[in-house]
Design a protein around this nucleic acid. Structure first.
Lengths: 201, 201
DNA sequence: ACCTGAACACCGTTCAAGT
DNA sequence: ACCTGAACACCGTTCAAGT
């Protein structure tokens, strides 16, 4: 088991190492060299496993976002599930403060997370395109919020930014409140538009 | 006038050069070396003018966002102004596709843009904290939207991303529609909450 | 075949040396 | 005083050389 070399090594292990580095030392510490070093390998073999650095970042994002959507309760009203879904997505973002940087690369992981919400809306009587639009709205709202939030509540020093010096920064509880209101507005809007169109059935 | 050296050179000129580089070649082309070179100067003098690269990015963001808020019409209902304001903020973002990266650094420019909206809400009878919350909601909603939008509608190749290959990507007109609905939901939500509290007067 | 070390063309930042 | 060139400690990526 100590006989591990670069010859066995798959993409998952590379992503594991990169995520460990992200968690322990932040995104700046994730480089092809540092990931290789953590695996006891030169940077070169990583290219055959994950492509290049952009692709590695995408794979990290995909792993962090996998299974993001909460399970659907059977008789749960769609409004409740939508709020739970939005909250879960936001929380997954919050877990990794610097994810907003990872995020720049692909939104594919979000699409996967979207399916259970779409299904729930369809079961609630939304037309296909109506459900897609509602889901997109909520996804963009939450992802956007989380992205901004990630920038506002920064915990890594970045040299010379004194805490509380940014007047647009909000506290954790203010952000929580802002998020709750925001999601409520969007969900209520979706509900009202839905009622206005689907009076039959 | 050809006798320009590094000895006269102020922060504004540095920011000018950096923005020109941003517009012409993208954010990756903006480095302390490249900005210096465009000014015919070594990278060293830039440090006494703008601090460091983070500070330069902040200054660029501030310049791009300056005067972002549209002028207030006298008798205009606050709802109309709020929508105009949101639209203007979004447009300012869209102008610089990679601004979302510049954005990571400071939200101070947004705070400045916020004032006319706050004033309009106050004149419409919003309490101080109510106006601040409404404004924050709209700001976060729009900034978040624009950030995601900037990542989705990418025009720079980034090696190996085929156009239309990202299923979460939406077309320009879809994004426009999404934005309009999103802003409407938030503004309507603000209006309803306001009516619910401020029945007197 | 698939690794490693060295190399290329870059970074941000600092420092000794010049004028 | 304030510049420049060189340096330091990094990048992502590629390539010749080794096994």
């Amino acid at each position: 088991m100590a006989g591990r070399t670069a010859f066995d090594l798959d993409a998952d292990e590379v992503v594991d190492a990169a995520l460990a580095l992200l968690e322990e030392e932040g995104l700046d510490a994730v480089s092809m060299r540092s990931v290789g070093a953590r695996l006891g390998v030169s940077p070169v073999p990583l290219y055959s496993r994950v492509g290049n650095k952009d692709a590695l970042l995408e794979a990290m994002a995909a792993r962090l976002m996998a299974g993001m959507a909460p399970a659907v309760d059977e008789g749960e009203p769609w409004v409740d599930y939508a709020v739970r879904w939005a909250t879960a997505v936001r929380r997954r973002f919050a877990r990794t403060a610097e994810l907003r940087l990872v995020l720049g690369n692909s939104r594919a992981p979000f699409v996967e997370a979207t399916r259970p919400l779409i299904d729930t809306l369809r079961r609630a009587g939304f037309a296909a395109d109506e459900a897609v639009q509602a889901c997109r709205l909520l996804l963009w709202a939450v992802a956007g919020f989380a992205t901004i939030e990630g920038g506002t509540v920064r915990d890594r020093p970045t040299r010379g930014r004194r805490p509380g010096g940014d007047p647009s920064g909000v506290s954790r509880t203010e952000a929580d409140h802002l998020f709750a209101v925001h999601v409520r507005y969007v969900v209520e809007g979706i509900a009202r538009d839905h009622e206005a169109t689907g009076v039959d059935g």
